[in-house]
Design a protein around this nucleic acid. Sequence first.
DNA 1: CCCATGACCACAA
DNA 2: ATTGTGGCCATGG
Length: 112
Amino acid sequence: MKADDSFFQRVFEVVKQIPHGRVTSYGAIAEYLGMKGSSRMVGWAMNASHTADDNIPAHRVVNRNGDLTGKFHFASPTLMEELLLSEGIKVVDDRIIDFKNIYWNPNIEIAQ
DNA sequence: CCCATGACCACAA
DNA sequence: ATTGTGGCCATGG
């Protein structure tokens, strides 16, 4: 199946715009897409991210607590943490340190 | 169309 | 802080 202008593709486009070394939350993306409250759908889209041809930095997307809730959905449970660490993001106990400081809000950063 | 599922979020106790 | 519950809505059977 091809996700052309699907909901997923919409999410992917936002996720791919996340700067290196920054993270955002599912809720923020959902709100940016005008689906505030439907943050589940963002996570759902991420679940399909591995089916996308493009590389989706899903590791830069966490929940509102900065918790690596989706780490088990990666190829390896530790892959998400590894990727974050490689970008200079500190992760301890599956949680991002100084989360609010590296938090990237699409509603503000993109805010057209 | 109805039902189940889901990498979430907000609120109440 | 932890636990439970409802809501959100796209996708698939």
